[in-house]
Design a protein around this nucleic acid. Sequence first.
RNA 1: UGGGGUGUGGCCAAGUGGUUAAGGCACCGGAUUUUGAUUCCGGCAUUCGAAGGUUCGAAUCCUUCCACCCCAGCCA
Length: 564
Amino acid sequence: MSKASPNHFIRSIASNDIKNGKHEYVYTRFPPEPNGYLHLGHAKSICLNFGLAKDLGGRCNLRFDDTNPEKESDEYMQSIKDSVAWLGFEWDKLCYASDYFDELYGFALELIDKGLAYVDDLSAEQMREYRGTLTEPGKNSPNRDRPVAENRALFEQMRDGEFAEGELVLRAKIDMASPNISMRDPILYRIRYAHHYRAGDKWCIYPMYDFTHCISDALEGITHSLCTLEFQDNRALYDWILENITLQKNHIGEAGKAMPRQIEFGRSNLEYTLASKRKLIQLVNEGHVNGWDDPRLTTLVGLRRRGYTPASIRNFCAEIGVTKKDSVIEMTVLENAIRHDLEANAKRAFGVLDPLKVVLTNYAAEQTESFVVRNHPKDESMGTRELPFGREVYIDRDDFMLDPPEDFFRLGPGREVRLRYGYAIRCEDVIQDDAGEVVELRCSYDPLSAQGKTADGRKIKGIIHWVSAAHAIDAEVRVYDRLFNQANPGALDDVTEALNPNSLTVFDNAKLEPSVIEADPQQHFQFERVGYFCFDSQDHQPAKPVLNRTVSLRDSWAKAAAKG
RNA sequence: UGGGGUGUGGCCAAGUGGUUAAGGCACCGGAUUUUGAUUCCGGCAUUCGAAGGUUCGAAUCCUUCCACCCCAGCCA
């Protein structure tokens, strides 16, 4: 269901603003801080911002909100650019808040000159005391009425490096008694002697988010500034700043006939996953996962490595909607999105994860043949391939039971199944080792059972996949399960308590049909009856194939079996 | 207990005073099937956080109450 742009409250606001002539077109921005890797939550924001602009004929910038040099890096910035592009979006302009540092400084001076900002020397602790509490108003700083000229001189000295970190800050002069704590003389600039990954060492004062963001929006001509719910209180400050500085006409932008409007939407969390950067870093650093792109992570790089397609993530985002309510999405929604995409677009192949050897005792030892099979059961344009067959084949251990129940349609002693696209076989003998483990099956095949028919017209209910032993390619296949066994691991102080010990299962003796290895390494497969797979982007080599299971196929048998 | 938000089926989510409360995911039936997949068809909220009220008529308007989330970084 590639959803055609569902309507939601932000879309309604934006299209009304165009209809009413408030703006000529919509102009949005996706404003990440380059201090970590993007995850599924960011994908929602990316799809919202870029999608809105695309659908309404507007534009969208990628803007790095890089005002905190100690946490930001070029590596993160590059990765974010890659992920946005990978998701399939093109930014109108690539912007950096750090490119506005000169202008921002100028606006700060304007506020000082208007008596709307002052330099304060209260310590962090004192400032916290002066700020008051949720229920009590704050009180004015003794520096609040410092003369304009002095403020200006002090601020310039701050910029010139004449003070130590933490010694002075620039504050807006608003209202220490405001019930909205964001308005209690918020800090606009702080001193940081840190190297900025883009601005270098040019500055030792850096603007705060609230001061930077609204002005960046205005400078770019952003019409709709979309952000998450926790910024609702900050909106008053956003508006206050823009109302109190002098923007040139072109600052409001070619599109903008009015100031940008901040609109907040709810975050979406996925069950059994983590979005907190801090906790993700812990998992990476402590080695619980293998890097930011571990396929069990819902980082965009992780999902990509796992085999999720950009379209599936876009569809997922369309599916979950945009509202003013934080939501918790079930894992099946994401899985449905990728299954839906890959069902239509992935080539079929045979792969056996846990091989059990089957010898066809009445098939000549030297004989081989091959079957021409379709790459997709419903899409002829995906072509055909040749599937080699011989006396020995591998089947999946799951497809055999020593003492199967009646409704097990697969192989068991004396039972008959069809090797998909090939012959019907009957299990004549089971070979077990000393420990009782089944190590081989001796079967007879019915030479008259090709093409899905049988000579006597008997129906064969069970159909299983297989790989010719003589032609099989050895591979390592990694099968993933949820990383956590609790729906909301983020609520835990120590997320490692909720780690699922079985989140990764390695099948290091998997057998694949030979056509798989000839494929484009970017390709996605469906191993019939098993799931969707892709080559691992880090560890795969043609001589030593490594694949990831993106997601299993739906399995109503397993579901029924689990229910008992 | 200050301010800002949110409450529609298991999870999302349409709906903005007028016939039986969209749709997706999940779930339960059944059909088709050389993937126990896909596809198809059917079922799945007398009820919209609760209680009052207005109205011929309310999930939609009013009142009160309840629950949950966010805000007291020189983070974003």
